[in-house]
Amino acid sequence: MADIAMSNFRGASQDAPKTASSEPARTPTVVVDDVHIVYKVHGAGSGKGSATSALSRLIAKKRSPAIREVHAVRGLSFTAYKGEAVGLIGSNGSGKSTMLAAIAGLLPTAKGAIYTNGQPSLLGVNAALMNDLTGDRNVILGCLAMGMTPKEVESRYQEIVDFSGINEKGDFISLPMRTYSSGMAARLRFSIAAAKTHDVLLIDEALATGDQKFQKRSEARIRELRKEAGTVFLVSHNNNAIRDTCERTIWIEKGELMMDGHTDEVVREYEKHNRA
């Protein structure tokens, strides 16, 4: 698991030197310190990665194909603060989603450390819902899994359904999740996650799914989450969603930090890089 060291993190923030600045002190929520993440790919380059070939090797007692290491994140360092919405941009395979998973504690770091002040919650469009259960059961179970009480779930249930827009064209909330399109499932997933105030909310491409009306609702909800306390990280290939939602953006390319600053400046440089 990623190195989550709350006591060390709090101690470090308390020991920070005080300055005479008139600006109010900001509260760090995530510190990424020289993080490296390495994947091990089995059978890379062999052309024999199927289950059938693996079984044949076991029967023949042959060695498995070579293991190749992929250095997905290379020495990333940054600090995020309470109330911030931080965009993560970069080309496909640049390490954005990998970085989110590491902050959530789902991936180990090969080197460096990640410190969080609060519990990170990862929301991705590929996160599995229970397809054999109805949408309403998934709403209830999802909210309970996030730590909401039964009374809180009951009070927020209709708001979650209305926000998702699942029932705008029929009573889909009472149907099994397997009958949903990928867009419907993603909208419901976002609606469930956004029903609770999170210490650190990690969103992977959630705003890329759904019609323009739902995207606007999502952006507005992220702004509310920021005001209510948490820090939001957003990974998206939709630069307009990043501009509309995030004041700060981090550009990652080939696992390395390219730029970290005001969203307009970073996105402008990123788009210029892609046109070159």
Rank of each mutant, 00 (worst) to 15 (best):
M1P: 10
M6N: 04
T19K: 08
P24H: 06
D33N: 13
V35W: 07
H36V: 03
I37A: 08
K48E: 13
L55E: 04
S56D: 11
S56G: 15
R57W: 07
K62T: 08
S64A: 15
V70H: 11
V70M: 09
H71R: 13
A72Y: 09
S77T: 15
S77W: 08
Y81S: 02
E84M: 11
L88A: 01
I89C: 10
S91R: 15
M99G: 08
L100R: 04
A101E: 05
I103Q: 00
I103P: 07
Y115Q: 11
N117W: 06
G118W: 01
S121F: 14
S121I: 05
L123F: 02
V125I: 08
A128E: 10
N131K: 06
D132L: 08
T134I: 04
D136V: 15
C143K: 11
L144P: 13
M148I: 09
E152R: 12
V153W: 06
Q158G: 02
I160T: 06
V161E: 02
D162A: 11
D162S: 12
I166K: 05
K169I: 07
I173G: 03
I173N: 07
M177G: 01
T179P: 06
Y180K: 06
S182F: 05
G183W: 01
G183T: 00
R187A: 00
L188Y: 09
R189Y: 04
S191N: 05
A193N: 10
A194N: 06
A195S: 15
K196Q: 13
V200N: 02
L201G: 03
A206D: 04
L207E: 00
Q212I: 12
Q215Y: 01
R217N: 13
R217M: 10
I222F: 03
E228F: 01
G230L: 05
F233I: 04
L234E: 03
L234P: 00
L234W: 03
S236Q: 09
I242S: 02
I242Q: 05
I242C: 07
D244G: 05
D244L: 14
T245A: 12
T245W: 00
E253F: 07
G255I: 08
E256P: 05
M258L: 04
E265K: 14
V266M: 08
E269P: 06
E271S: 11
K272M: 05
N274G: 00
N274C: 09
